[in-house]
């Protein structure tokens, strides 16, 4: 464990708490893509199946359980508790265009052709694009509540921090490198660049998140 990864994980945790806070204080999931949240459940379940047969550390297990439980809970909030505030008519990204290629990529690129390793690869590829329905929705509506942008920023920072983590590990752990996670991680971080530009130039200057018409 190094500082980059710890801060990255904490940023990931923070993003989930920000999202829960947004839903509970505004009593609304307006502006949140159900599809993106459903993809995250898929990602966590596919990746953390190893909870059943591999113990890494208490930290590792607790985080995995938290990510699965909180993502399922968010789906529950969107689908049941705050259902009337969820508007599927603006959440129109076609996720089959993400799922198909991710299945294909995971069958080609994996560390071992076994069920759990292919699922792990699949989860890595899917996570890298899971934010697209959310960003697409943002693009469509052209604006976002400030708290929603903080959620997205924390999520983007989490991924961005994994990059120095990999560089650090490569240097300190005798050339250890995980090309699948690194490639997907670079793509995932890249998807946030446009968002970050608006976030830093507008939201952090106290303005509303609004995209140019």
């Amino acid at each position: 464990m190094n500082l980059f990864r710890l801060l990255g994980d904490l940023s990931h945790l923070a993003s989930i708490f920000i999202l829960l806070h947004k839903i509970q204080t505004t009593r609304s999931c307006r502006g949140i893509s159900f599809k993106t949240q459903a993809l995250y459940v898929t990602v966590f379940v596919a990746r953390y199946l190893d909870l059943f047969y591999r113990y890494v550390s208490l930290y590792n297990s607790v985080m995995k359980l938290f990510f699965i439980a909180s993502s399922v809970y968010i789906l529950y909030l969107m689908k049941y508790k705050y259902r009337p505030t969820n508007d599927p008519s603006i959440d129109t990204f076609r996720i089959e265009y993400l799922l198909g290629p991710c299945v294909l990529l995971s069958l080609i690129f994996n560390y071992k052709f076994s069920v759990t390793e292919v699922l792990w690869s699949f989860s890595i590829f899917l996570e890298s694009v899971a934010i697209l329905p959310q960003l697409f929705m943002l693009q469509r509506t052209g604006e976002a509540e400030t708290i929603t942008t903080h959620y997205l920023a924390a999520l983007g920072v989490y991924r961005a921090l994994y990059i120095p983590n990999w560089i650090y590990r490569y240097i300190t752990e005798d050339g250890v490198v995980d090309p699948i996670a690194v490639t997907a991680g670079l793509v995932q971080t890249g998807l946030y660049i446009d968002f970050f530009y608006v976030y830093f130039t507008k939201v952090l200057q106290g303005q509303k998140f609004e995209l140019p018409a």
């Binding site: 990864r5 550390s57 792990w120 050339g175 250890v176 995980d178 699948i180 996670a181």
Partner: peptide, 10 residues
Amino acid sequence: KSAERPKDEL
């Protein structure tokens, strides 16, 4: 070096 991924990352 065999292709192995670090198993400790989230």
